[in-house]
Structure formats: C-alpha cells, structure tokens
Design a protein around this nucleic acid. Structure first.
Lengths: 222, 222
DNA sequence: CGAGGGCTATTCCTTTAGGGTTAGCCAGCC
DNA sequence: GGCTGGCTAACCCTAAAGGAATAGCCCTCG
C-alpha cells in the first residue's frame, strides 16, 4: 500500500456510489485539489470491489446505502479480499446501528453526505493520511453507542438464531400471530411458540413486540 | 408564472437539498445546458421555501429527505403559499408510500437520485414544459399503489388518531407492554388498553404487533 | 345551555402469549 | 455406538392482550 504523506505524489481515491450526480460533485470537488486524485468511480458495488482490488487506491469512499449488495457487505468483502487501503463510509444515514456496524467491520471513517465541501476535502485528506475520520455530528451518537455497549453487553445478534428461528422471526415481524405463522409454515401453533420462546431468549428480548420492532429496524423483515 | 416552451429564454430552476456535493453535481450538469438555468440553491428547507417564493423559478427540485422540516412538508408549504411553478421531488427513496404521498400533495414529478445525468436533464426539460416526470423504475411501483388503493381503501392513516393515541402508539412501537406504557404515562393499564383498542380500530389493524411494525416502518416511532 | 369528543377508568370475558418441562425423530460428529 | 443440536409436539400454568360496555370529567363548539 502506498501512503502519501506530504507533497509527494497525490493520494489516490475511489468512489463507489450509486448516485451519478453525487459522484460528479465529488469529482469536481477533488479536481480542485492537487494532493487528492480520483482514480476510479462506479455506481455498481460489485464492479467497485473489483476496481478497488485492481487499482489499489489509498482510499475508497463507499456508499452505505446501495441497491443489491449494500455498503456494509461491500466493506466486508473488501477486507476479506485483503484490500489494505482506507475505506471511508459515505452516507446519509446517521443511525447509530449503521455507524457502529461500519466501524466494527473495519471502516476507517464515516462521513455524512450533507457535510460542507470544504470539510469534506479536509476530512478526506486526513483519512488518506491514515487518520480515522468521523463526521462531527456523530460524536454524541458514538458516545451513546459506547454507553449502551457498557450497559447492555448482550446486543441482539441475528446470527445466534437457527434458520427456522429466523424464519419465524420474519413472519412475526410482519405482524402475524403464532396461529397464522403456524398455518403459513404448516406446523402446529405449539411449535411456533417454542421457536418464539427460544428466539426471545437468544435475543434477550421480553416480548414478540420487541422482537418485531427490532427486526424491522434491523431490516430483517421480508 | 413564466413557462418556457421553446428556444425562448431558458427555464429557471432551483434546488433544495441538504447535500452540498449533490447540489454541486446538479449545478455542473445544468451549466452544460443552454435551456436550463439554475437560479438558486440551498440546503435549508425554510430558506428554500422563501427563496422559491421570491425567485419564482419555473421548477423546484426538492429533496424529500432533509433534517428538520422534511420535503413533503416543504411541498405542502409551497403549495399553500400559492407557489405555482413545478415542484419535482428528488430523492433516494423509492418507497411506495413516499412516492404516493408526494404525488398526492401536488408534486409534479418524482425523480430518483441514482438516475443517469443524461436522463436527468431530459426529465427536467420535460418537467419545465409542464409534463409530469417519474423515474422509470417507479412505474411498476405506481401500478402497485393504484391496485392497493382499489383493494384496500382504508390505508392506515396516522392523522385519524388523537394526540394521546399517537403517544400510546409510539410507546407501543418501542416494544413496551400496556403496563409499562401506563407507568410511563402515569395512567392505569386499563386506560392504555382502551387507547390501544381505539387506535387498532382506527388503523384497521389486528394486533399491537401489526401496529408496532407499521409505526416503525412509517417512522412514527420515537 | 346541550351535544359531542377526548381522556380517564372500571368490569367482565375470551383469546393470545410466553415460561417450564418432557419427548420423539433425525442429522452430523467424535 | 453415544452425544449434540435442530425441529417437531404436547402438557401445564400464569400473564398479557384485546373486545364490549358503561361512565365520569373536562373542554369546545354551536
């Protein structure tokens, strides 16, 4: 990995974002900066991953919300493929879960799309130098996340569930009663209740309503 | 209102979007077009409304998802203030409800931010001429919305609820039981049950789980 | 002033949810 | 072969949810 530190060669950047206009905005912004060079851009996550591995830019600006493969998945895939450059998530979402998930998955920064261009350039420059960058408006949110982590060490984790339990959870999160879930999956209501009981215990939740709300917020429904 | 029809004076446009980079992308795009002129831009909805009323552009590109006053609210306020130009919603959201709500509130178009720049210019030109423009990928969705409208004339409507019922719904949508809601709002559990019963009837839902899921999906929680 | 709506509350009743336990069946694993 | 984990199912029991009806209190509107 080549890391530009001073008035050497410019730092190379790539942007993966499904909004052509936003890409154009970023491109135009970077043209004005001598020490930052945009070497690639695409709106397709798959293509973006391949391109990043080929061009090996110092930094990848990665949209979190894209159709199909989402940004988080792309981030994981980049890391798995041993891409060693910086990856900065670039998104509209200031949801705590998104930020935390991105950072846990190895993101080197998290910038919001509504930031001012000048700030953007400054942050990108810092990121290219290897510093972690986070939009200022997210600091309070991060503090909150840390506090929650302390108080609730057992964050619900979808991966602790079995296939069947996930299936039950999805139905539950669409508002169905145990009886209707049973009818739909062609098992008895009693069995559904067993699954619900188990998934509530695993997720450390206290009712199906909590489970439904959590599932919807996490996008586990449908 | 001045409506540019031919090789006359260029059509005037305004953009209200809280993403400076995207505004820059649009601005650059429009500079290349002789018949489209960007006369104003801002990231603040309030300022945008005032500016639109002052400049009276032929067309306002309005972001649906903005902090504080949202785009739908801005649209309503523009219409109430008798702004007679075209208003085209410009957003990342392809949620059926958002599209339908925008059109019901008098939007003249609904464009997705991930569209290609060339399409964008073409669509804006059409819109400035008074034609309704909708991103192509949304046509199927609109057909769906129309069908649902036929089959389910009683779509849940938050506005049919009283203040107290909305309050109960919010608590419910955070996963609380009737008992806990009662404790939190300092009323008896029986009263909470009455409110829940009423709001379920008004929303035509069959359980608190359905209500919670709906509320979360609609963003009514918190 | 009376009517109506909103918020509160209570009583009665049925259905649903959820915890605990036991158990059969089947797959993969040591 | 025995063991474990997942899916199924049943039993018992308590708690929670939800439907129906009635009613008092307060406020607003005509």
């Amino acid at each position: 990995m080549t890391l530009t530190t001073a008035n050497d060669t410019p730092a190379t950047l790539m942007i993966i974002d499904d909004h052509p206009l936003l890409r154009r905005g970023v491109a135009q912004l970077l043209e004005l900066e001598d020490d930052l060079e945009l070497v690639g851009e695409t709106g397709d996550p798959e293509e973006g991953i391949a391109l990043a591995l080929k061009l090996e830019p110092d930094l990848v600006l990665l949209d979190l919300n894209m159709p199909g493969v989402n940004g988080l998945e792309a981030l994981r895939r980049l890391r798995e493929a041993n891409y060693s450059g910086r990856v900065v998530m670039f998104t509209v979402s200031d949801h705590e879960d998104d930020v935390v998930a991105a950072l846990r998955n190895g993101a080197d920064g998290y910038l919001l799309k509504d930031m001012e261009p000048e700030d953007m350039v400054r942050q990108l420059r810092q990121a290219a130098l290897g510093r972690m960058v986070i939009s200022e408006s997210l600091t309070a949110l991060l503090a909150e996340a840390l506090r929650n982590q302390r108080n609730a060490p057992t964050t619900p984790d979808i991966h602790s569930l079995t296939q069947r339990e996930r299936e039950i959870l999805q139905q539950l999160a669409s508002g169905l009663s145990n009886k209707l879930i049973a009818r739909k999956l062609d098992i008895t209501e009693g069995t559904v209740k067993v699954h619900v009981k188990h998934l509530l215990k695993k997720l450390n939740l206290r009712s199906r309503v909590e489970a439904a709300v959590w599932a919807v917020q996490e996008g586990i429904d449908h």
